[in-house]
Design a protein around this nucleic acid. Sequence first.
DNA 1: CGCCTCCGTTTTATAATATAAAACACCGTT
DNA 2: AACGGTGTTTTATATTATAAAACGGAGGCG
Lengths: 257, 257
Amino acid sequence: MPIIQSVDRAFKILDLFNELNPELKVSEISSKLSLNKSTVHSLLKTLKEHDYVRQDPDSGKYSLGMKLVERSNFLMNSIDVRSIAKQSLVELSMETSLAVHLVILDGQAGVYIDKVDSPTAIIGYSRVGRRVPIHSSAVGKVLVAYQSQEERNETLKDYDYKKQTEKTITNAQDFQEELQRVLTKGYAIDAEENEPGVTCLAIPIYDHSGRVTAAVSISAPSTRFSGDRIHPVISKLKQTGETISRKLGYTSTLSHA
Amino acid sequence: MPIIQSVDRAFKILDLFNELNPELKVSEISSKLSLNKSTVHSLLKTLKEHDYVRQDPDSGKYSLGMKLVERSNFLMNSIDVRSIAKQSLVELSMETSLAVHLVILDGQAGVYIDKVDSPTAIIGYSRVGRRVPIHSSAVGKVLVAYQSQEERNETLKDYDYKKQTEKTITNAQDFQEELQRVLTKGYAIDAEENEPGVTCLAIPIYDHSGRVTAAVSISAPSTRFSGDRIHPVISKLKQTGETISRKLGYTSTLSHA
DNA sequence: CGCCTCCGTTTTATAATATAAAACACCGTT
DNA sequence: AACGGTGTTTTATATTATAAAACGGAGGCG
């Protein structure tokens, strides 16, 4: 039994709203769709519960709800961020011969949503889907540093600064100072704070609305960054971030190369 | 019996998609929501039918559909266009002491979605909700002129160029030329083509995506526009259009004041 | 003042409908 | 060739959506 009637009807209701009828009454919908008032009311109640419609408290009229906007924005972003970033990530990986990751924030941890292995990688297991601590990773630092004050408080509420290596930052105060450094420099570094012998660099990705929605990181054995060899990598990484952000529709001060 | 289970479940499915899971398999959804595969499949089929999800032909995976974007865009616009335009329309009406209308296209006719009477109006009945022919009104000309070729063909398919007054354009060829003039001048004029003794001017309103979604018109007894008295009105009307478009998020070549 | 009508909502009995198990068909891997 | 995985279709069951009617509040009008 394909096509579920009630669901079908729910979406037919959503389709009824247009420029001519930005607001609709139960009885109007009822007559337009030839459905019982009661049926329409139940459907609307369910739609309202999920914020796909909202109801004017005074007039009782219904109109479309903000969940549509929220879902739509996510769709636009997700179409963008991964597929658009891909090419740049591959290029970055090739130029540096290092592993590159695309990470987003999920609650109190970062989550890998894409990765490109270095062409010369020995171990090639994928971290995609795996979680990484905020306080001990470059990507985590970036994603939190660029949050709003309010969001950051929420993220770090009751956060456990668990010691990962000898170099891990293990208290809130030091971490706050680290976040400040990230904002000042425009990139984050994890110097063997998460995994002995591994150093990571990360930069923010801005979406079309100017918010930082992802971070790109580059990982290497710490020896790879000895002396001044880290600077060209930071430069390339920043360029990649700016390229991806621009592709996502971000149009702001991306001047400082 | 409030809250319809199947509809509720359909929206729970839509909520499952996020940055971590931009694509989901039937079986994944099934396990995440503790529903039978078959149930999920029926729900997805219905969602797919309405383009709220789409399915990758190769992998079979599901992701969110473009209908969400379409509905969201409409919502954003409808929130905007009428309420945002209002103030500008009132100001225009006061400055010119004339009646001002906000009109959108609906099939083969324009529809008044708002109006502001001139402060000195004698007859004050509202045209809101009423329809107006495309070929004999300034607003109609504007709304069709700024459509894409494809949309315009659809709009004018089997169109009946009904004679409204002695001056009405009554054939397709003349109308095409008139549309060209509208695009060139940036505004449309209805010189007693719809109603004897009444002349209207209209300009396009661009939304955030750059599409013309509405038109603003100004109506007066033809005598009001004798000699050069029409020019300052056109200028004011254009300014109003640019103001409203800008408020709607339109950001393009609005240079030529 | 009370009647009347229209609204959205709630209730309730009925039967239509959504549900889930199982079988199916397909693909890739083992 | 057999298995484990996919999405899909079928079918029988009973859960579930449905619509009629009753409710209660709001506004208009005599």
